[in-house]
Design a protein around this nucleic acid. Sequence first.
RNA 1: UGGGCUGUCGCCAAGUGGUAAGGCAUCGGCUUUUGGUGCCGACAUUCGGGGGUUCGAAUCCCUCCAGCCCAG
Length: 340
Amino acid sequence: MKVYVGMSGGVDSSLTAALLVEQGHDVTGVYMKNWTQDLPGMKCPWADDLADAKRVAVQLGIDFKVFDFESEYRHKVVDYMIEEYRAGRTPNPDIMCNQEVKFKLFLDSAIEDGAEMIATGHYASVENGVLKMAADTNKDQTYFLYRVTGEALQKTLFPLGEYTKPTVRKMAEERGLFTAAKKDSQGICFVGKVGIREFLSQYVEQKPGEIIDKKSGKVLGHHDGAIFYTLGQRHGLELGGGLPYYVIGKNMEKNEVYVTTQLNDDTLWKSHVELNSIHWINDAPADGTYQIRVRHRAPLVAAQLHGHTLDIDDPQRAVTAGQSIVIYQNDICLGGGIVL
RNA sequence: UGGGCUGUCGCCAAGUGGUAAGGCAUCGGCUUUUGGUGCCGACAUUCGGGGGUUCGAAUCCCUCCAGCCCAG
């Protein structure tokens, strides 16, 4: 089978390519060039990543290509992210990246280029277009994949789904892949180690505003833009005294951030959630009880689905507008929606 | 101007004669392919200033300074 593997230059995608070669596929490695811009205090590692991906391809003796998605990525992912933040929400750009770039743009481009299937190093499993959690429940990445379509998954392979991360590292090492010990990437995939705040500051003007105690209504301090704060956030408020303060809301028009020291504040714990732009990977499930996940790596919890609303058995912390809730039935990832 | 109170790290705050708790914030690290959360570590040779008592004081005494409150 002719398979195009998305190779980021990390261990996971390196081993993915290696395994596919061993399985006898006709493998082509593809580096997706999504973001190349340096940011203050942070050099974009794209050139190094590309070099790493290429070296692994050479090592494996497979074809290697670079797909340039920079312009689309900028529009579909980065602009989306900035707009969402401007609207006072907290988006998840990596989910958008999977939906728009990896499993749409990359898939289409690969097929057009002659591929029969694509593959990535995600920790997830797919069977007949059905998305399932990875064997390594600690690393499972289905949360980021819930906006992919069943049709796309029909043409997708996730060779790492049955392995754990430590095993992957070991297998990479056994095969002499020089990316075997490369550190896991984290943070927004394109921003790298730079904080979201630093990144946003490049695109958004700073505007001083007040930090207000929800209970007393007193002004406790000042910030330089409500846009930089999100629900449940604790650090970066620079408020001293007594107990730690947590963000429990904000008003974009007034540019005000509301805080409290009460860990059990109502707005911090939600059990009833309205979902927006729901997406099902395959058929829409009937109303009923399912398992849901409020954020990546959050434990699965039971919830009742009624159309566009979810009633969660146990209230969840910092369920934030713009973030995604993903819905599961046993180990199957059905889809999910964005918190309204 | 009388009377009372207070002054310990950027903030809150223990400690009332035995040689400076803790929390917040901040900084560093860990966890994490989103934001965020969480975890670990660092962080006052010094207690508003100056004298004095004492083997020894942030803790007792004197004095000065600053702030607050009640009187006026």
